[in-house]
């Protein structure tokens, strides 16, 4: 019971923090922490039931699973296919699981064709290319789209880190 209370308290404090500092000029469709947390907790619970967490030699393997679960939960919380990066991330994750996912085709057009013509920004080509490697699906985005997606991706990532930190704090022995 105490753990639940701690968790709820942390979530609500986080929420007020971001409400205060949120920037309304950028895409405001950053997912709620709760949405990500629920996705993430659910996949964690699936993980625990699939393979019990008490065999010590599989910590690394489990950490990798947890990491993957975190990213997938983040992409799902961000609205699945509504964002290019989340779509790319989910696609990649599904590929690793040998599953085929099909997304609606509409949004794809915008990205592919232009990218070959204008692969990098003239002013900072190296930095832009590095960015492409860091943002999921960034390789095929035109520069302005890449920046938009990067902004959204950063917001989601830092949200993910906060929630995971909360979980770690909540689970750590007092």
């Amino acid at each position: 019971m105490s753990f639940i209370k701690v968790l709820i308290l942390k979530f609500s404090s986080l929420r007020t923090q971001t409400m205060a500092s949120s920037d309304k000029t950028i895409n405001t469709d950053v997912p709620e922490k709760d949405v990500f947390a629920i996705h993430f907790l659910q996949s964690l619970s699936n993980l625990t039931t699939q393979n019990p967490f008490n065999s010590p030699d599989t910590t690394n393997y489990r950490a990798r699973k947890i990491k993957k679960a975190a990213y997938v939960s983040m992409a799902k919380a961000a609205g699945g296919s509504s964002r290019l990066w989340s779509r790319a991330l989910l696609g990649r994750a599904a590929k690793e699981n040998n599953k085929i996912v099909r997304f609606a085709r509409r949004k794809r057009k915008v990205t592919w064709k232009i990218s070959s013509k204008r692969r990098s920004d003239q002013r900072a080509p190296e930095a832009t290319d590095r960015l492409r490697n860091l943002v999921p699906g960034g390789g095929t985005m035109e520069t302005s789209k890449l920046m938009e997606e990067t902004a959204h991706y950063i917001k989601c990532l830092s949200m993910q880190v906060k929630v995971m930190q909360c979980l770690v704090d909540g689970l750590s022995p007092k």
Binding site: L44, T48, F53, N54, P56, T59, N60, R62, A63, R64, I66, K67, A70, Y71, L134, I154, L157, S158, Q160, V161, M164, Q165, L167, V168, L171, S172
Partner: peptide
Amino acid sequence: LHREVDDLSERLSELLA
């Protein structure tokens, strides 16, 4: 941020174990 996620995943894994 990616590195933090890596660290936190490891810590979560240990904590849950």
